[in-house]
């Protein structure tokens, strides 16, 4: 029982440290995804209601690093300029943290067939992997998985939700 209490306390501290660290970087405004020139100034995403947190959750105990999601056009798996900018940032973080291994998840919106979306999600994950490998990240540090349309961020059926769901995520292992 006492052991459990200690464990809970340790976890609480860990969570608090984690939250404190995140403040340095504002959440990205998800509404801008898919639009041209959507780069936001720091602080702009802090308006009330911006509850989406696009940053990959930090693994407790791991070095605090952030890897950002990238987004894709409908039925596309090529990297657009926004995606490349984000990936370059992710690559730099991975270069600075050579012990970190990641799994890249590829996701789709739910239009089209589950089968094709599974392949499309795989290509979205692989596109991100190939960029990182070309950047100099060892392929052995990266695995990929496609979830197709199985794990939408936003289950709504509209353009905004679909844009959010067409993405690759970077899961620290």
């Amino acid at each position: 029982m006492r052991l459990l209490l200690v464990l809970v306390l340790v976890l609480c501290v860990a969570v608090m440290v984690g939250c404190g660290g995140k403040k340095a970087r504002p959440p990205e405004d998800i509404d801008e995804i898919g639009e041209q020139g959507g780069a936001k100034m720091p602080g702009e995403g802090d308006e009330p209601g911006a509850t989406d947190e696009p940053v990959t959750p930090i693994k407790p105990g791991a070095d605090e690093i952030e890897l950002r999601r990238i987004y894709f056009g409908y039925d596309k798996y090529n990297l657009d300029n926004d995606a490349i900018t984000t990936l370059a940032g992710n690559a730099a973080v991975l270069m600075d943290n050579p012990s970190v291994k990641i799994r890249i998840e590829g996701h789709c919106d739910d239009r089209g067939t589950e089968n094709y979306n599974l392949a499309l999600g795989e290509k979205r994950a692989l596109a991100a992997r190939d960029y990182l490998v070309n950047f100099g990240i060892a392929q052995s540090r990266i695995s990929v998985i496609s979830y197709g349309e199985e794990r939408p961020l936003d289950p709504a059926e509209n353009e905004k939700a679909w844009a959010k769901n067409r993405r690759s995520e970077f899961d620290i292992r």
Binding site: L118, E122, I145
Partner: peptide, 11 residues
Amino acid sequence: RFSAFQGMNAM
């Protein structure tokens, strides 16, 4: 388990 290669095993 019939097929479990790295990456997708599907369809």
